[in-house]
């Protein structure tokens, strides 16, 4: 990890010094363990702030929207797919970007780690190749990283960036033999009432803070539908129906665009697994339109193209 951090710093310094980019977007160590923060570096001297380990779960693509300068950006598999989505949606031009690809072996689920140590306060985390060690007052525990990956990383099929100008390190082997949508299939087997109860329970704790929306690189509308008041599309209370409406619409806005980067789930202060909504749409996009978001700069997404053989069984 430390070698990769050094490489990122060197590349950022070089790019900023020779003027290839005006700003470099990467991660820095967070003020709290397991919470690395995005950082925008403009001065080569600040590049030593950059940091990389398995706690860089936020999607950096979120900081690209509408920028007019030249940007260097660090991109893992899912981040690079979000960047591709941004480019085909005309939110940024490819020639503005210098994408520094980084192979990713998955991010650590900070909630699972906190549970594993019985919610004692973790003050530090160190990482080796396949294990990580957390320390706090009076305890030190080592875990296998593979057992504590974020839900989306466990089922990830694109660990290596799909689009980059330069690659840091060798590409990692993609996970084989994973069943990407087993959770969705389990829900599909439930009865209608059980599904209803499942999703109602799922969003039960939602406080409508919109952290999921803010962390999502796809949510770049100047005014979000939840913030509009004329007309007011959705109730602003935490009534279950209002909350469900918000989550359904948020998810549907991501249909065919979501790369399952897991940023929404990671930032949720209540630990809600709202990926259950977007994953159903991802599965439909894949099954009905053979589409996985962000894999190609030349293909148009299913929702902005028409083909005469499009899925239309739902229309009478």
């Amino acid at each position: 990890m430390i070698e990769l951090t050094e490489k990122i710093r060197d590349i950022a310094k070089k790019l900023l010094k020779d003027g290839t980019v005006d700003v470099f977007i990467g991660y820095k160590k967070g003020s709290v363990p397991m919470m690395n923060e995005p950082v925008l570096i403009r001065n080569p001297d600040e590049a030593d702030l950059l940091y990389w380990d398995s706690n860089c779960g936020l999607n950096l693509c979120n900081y690209l929207t509408g920028r007019t300068d030249r940007i260097g950006i660090l991109a893992t598999g899912c981040n690079s797919r979000s960047i591709v989505t941004h480019i085909i949606e005309n939110q940024i031009r490819r020639d503005q970007l210098y994408i520094v690809g980084i192979p990713c072996t998955g991010m650590i689920d900070h909630r699972a780690v906190n549970r594993a140590v019985g919610h004692r306060e973790i003050t530090d985390i160190t990482e080796s190749d396949i294990t990580f060690t957390v320390t706090g007052k009076g305890f030190q525990e080592t875990f296998n990283k593979a057992d504590y990956l974020q839900g989306n990383c466990k089922v990830c099929r694109h660990r290596n960036p799909v689009e980059y100008d330069e690659m840091i390190g060798e590409p990692v082997e993609e996970q084989k033999g994973i069943e990407p949508y087993s959770d969705v299939k389990n829900i599909e087997k439930m009865s209608c009432d059980d599904k209803n109860a499942f999703f109602r329970r799922l969003i039960d704790k939602c406080i409508r803070c919109y952290a999921c929306r803010n962390a999502c690189p796809l949510c770049y509308c100047p005014t979000c539908f939840v913030d509009e008041s004329r007309p007011q599309w959705v109730g602003k209370s935490i009534d279950p129906t209002d909350t469900m409406t918000f989550h359904l619409l948020r998810a549907f806005h991501c249909a065919g665009r979501c790369t399952d980067c897991g940023a929404c789930e990671r930032v949720c202060p209540m630990g809600i697994s709202m990926r259950q909504f977007t994953r159903k749409l991802n599965r439909d996009a894949e099954e009905l339109f053979s589409w996985q978001a962000g894999l190609s700069l030349t293909e148009r997404p299913p929702l902005d193209t028409y083909r005469s053989d499009d899925y239309n069984d739902f229309i009478k």
């Binding site: 969705v184 209608c192 009432d193 599904k195 209803n196 499942f198 999703f199 469900m244």
Partner: peptide, 9 residues
């Protein structure tokens, strides 16, 4: 329609 029915409609 698929999403709504998936979530219990």
């Amino acid at each position: 329609k698929n999403l709504l029915e998936h979530t219990g409609l």
